[in-house]
């Protein structure tokens, strides 16, 4: 019996230790990003708001898109895509910008991209009250479907990791990955239904929206937050399968490459 108890204590200790490590690394990531900027984390919150104003002006006022509750519709898309975009962008530095950690004993390098995605999750969660406020102003009632939000956040986390792992590896070899990525992410922004509806896309392009996991992701968020209903089952299943598959493939590749990180950064 004492042996069993001791093993349990070791487990609890290891869990607490990993939790503290993750917390400390996330805090470090956020601190380093805002050190020396007065507005600090406010910048990150202002960014999607500014984007919202610009896109609302172009599509809501000038082009007069007829999507009901367009500001809330737009902002949901912007936040969901924003977390994805900034995380994948920052993932380029997950290894090369953490040289001192990669070369230090005691750092489980598999954790580094997780830290990047998690520190951006903090920003995402801090922006959520603004979104909820926007929904309330637009008289969109929050229903119990919104309780699924943590689940969707978990799925998005896994999906982003599926991109973050390979991006971190590629940038070890090619240090201009971020520039190429920026173009790709911008393109993806326009090819994801953020300020328009998939149903208005021409028939011959619909296939893309069916395979793009972000379509299903954005739609699932809108379902639980704006329509007060469960996400569409087929799309959600596809999203979960793709997210887990990408994450596992990315992780396997990253793990293989990680044996040489200390030699190459």
């Amino acid at each position: 019996m004492p042996a069993l108890a001791a093993r349990r204590d070791t487990r609890i200790f290891e869990w607490a230790q990993t939790r503290d490590l993750l917390r400390e690394l996330i805090a470090r990531d956020i601190k380093l990003r805002y050190r020396g900027s007065m507005l600090g984390i406010l910048w990150t919150l202002l960014n999607p708001l500014a984007e919202l104003l610009v896109l609302y002006f172009v599509f809501g006022t000038v082009l007069q898109v007829t999507i009901p509750n367009f500001p809330a519709y737009l902002f949901t898309g912007l936040l969901v895509y924003g977390w994805f975009q900034t995380s994948v962008n920052f993932a380029t530095g997950a290894v090369v910008a953490n040289r001192e950690l990669v070369r230090r004993p005691g750092v489980p390098v598999l954790i580094l991209p997780i830290v990047t995605v998690a520190s951006n999750l903090v920003h995402f969660v801090l922006s959520l009250p603004i979104l909820i406020g926007l929904l309330l102003i637009s008289h969109v009632p929050l229903t119990s479907a919104a309780l699924l939000l943590p689940g969707l956040i978990a799925i998005e986390f896994v999906l982003i990791l599926g991109f973050a792992y390979p991006v971190a590896v590629v940038n070890v070899w090619f240090r201009d990955t971020q520039h190429v990525l920026r173009i790709a992410l911008q393109l993806l922004f326009y090819m994801t239904p953020i300020f328009y509806k998939t149903s208005t896309v021409p028939q011959n392009l619909q296939w893309w929206y069916r395979i793009n996991p972000l379509t299903h992701l954005v739609d699932a968020y809108r379902a639980v937050l704006m329509r007060g209903e469960l996400p569409e089952a087929g799309g959600l299943t596809y999203l979960i399968v793709v997210s887990i598959a990408l994450c596992l493939i990315g992780l396997a590749w990253y793990r293989r490459a990680s044996y040489r990180f200390a030699d190459e950064v």
């Binding site: 230790q17 490590l21 380093l32 001192e100 005691g106």
Partner: peptide, 22 residues
């Protein structure tokens, strides 16, 4: 393995955790 921009205290806490403590 310290980060130049973080304080001595912040770096020491992280280093301690990396050495296996809570």
């Amino acid at each position: 393995g310290f980060h130049p921009e973080l304080t001595g205290r912040e770096n020491a806490i992280l280093a301690g955790i990396l050495n296996g403590l809570t």
